[in-house]
């Protein structure tokens, strides 16, 4: 395990990019920060810019407009940057796969490290997903 990754997993700073999501996953992400779940205990903080972030959270199925935005965001992220796809839409386009405005899934645009399923996933599921991601990175 490289020093970079070891330092990275100590305190994850996340940046949240909503790509035409329905808000549910976005709200559950914010919910994980509020007192009942309070992931800030583990050093997980939502930051305002991708340039400060270790993890990129992606929700929703990208449309033609957000597809380019997402590419741009990922290229600006400091490497190594982990990507988590949250919700069924981000993981596999769900019921929007036949839509005229959903060109591709998230993992066809940028590499995804962790998929968290659910519509929306509960905050417990999001926390469990992040824990598994940290363990996976630790084994490398």
């Amino acid at each position: 395990m490289s020093l970079k990754l070891k330092v990275l997993t100590k305190s994850l700073w996340v940046y949240h990019a909503g790509c035409s999501a329905c808000n549910n996953c976005d709200i559950e992400i914010l919910d994980a920060l509020t007192p009942r779940y309070d992931v800030e205990r583990f050093g997980i903080v939502v930051v305002g810019s991708i340039r400060h972030a270790d993890v990129l959270l992606v929700t929703g199925v990208p449309n033609y407009k957000t597809k380019e935005e997402l590419k741009g965001l990922y290229s600006q992220a400091p490497q190594p940057c982990l990507v988590i796809a949250i919700g069924n839409c981000a993981c596999g386009r769900a019921m929007f796969k036949d839509s005229y405005n959903s060109p591709c899934a998230v993992d066809e645009i940028i590499p995804v490290d962790c998929y968290i399923l659910g519509c929306p996933p509960k905050p417990e599921a999001i926390i469990a997903g992040v824990v598994k991601l940290i363990q996976k990175v630790g084994k490398k």
Partner: peptide, 11 residues
């Protein structure tokens, strides 16, 4: 706006 359009009416 237009970043969240998914074409639900058509779907």
């Amino acid at each position: 706006v237009g970043y969240v359009h998914r074409g639900i009416e058509k779907l």
